[in-house]
Amino acid sequence: MLALNETWYLVLAAMIFTIGSVGLLTRKNPLVMFMCVELMLNAVNLTFVTFSKALDDIAGQAIVFFVMVVAAAEVVVGLGIIVAIMRRRQGANADDISLLRG
């Protein structure tokens, strides 16, 4: 049996990241798109922790901490925007909101 090493974790992170990115590109519900972004962020966090262990450096974990803070702030503001939009246009999806079309 193969030994468990960093590569396994990194391959898993790459897969989660890819799934998240494909979901972000294909889903239309803004809430689900947000969840996909969270998936991508988690995949990256996983690589940080993995490298932290591999290189014996606590700084990788510190960065994960900051990523989490930023993700929380992002979710708060993003959901606020979604609530504000949904109030005016019930059931809107991401494709309906295209006021910035050139």
Binding site: A3, N5, E6, T7, L10, V11, A14, M15, F17, T18, I19, S21, V22, L25, T50, F51, S52, K53, A54, L55, D56, D57, I58, A59
Partner: peptide, 29 residues
């Protein structure tokens, strides 16, 4: 998605099984 995954896996699996790079000296666990 396929491109991203394929390229990442190429990069990961082609260099062997260990992470290369400098181990920390300042913030060692």
């Amino acid at each position: 998605g396929v491109a991203i995954l394929g390229l990442s896996l190429t990069a990961l699996l082609s260099v062997g099984s260990r992470v290369t790079g400098q181990a920390s000296t300042l913030a060692a666990i």
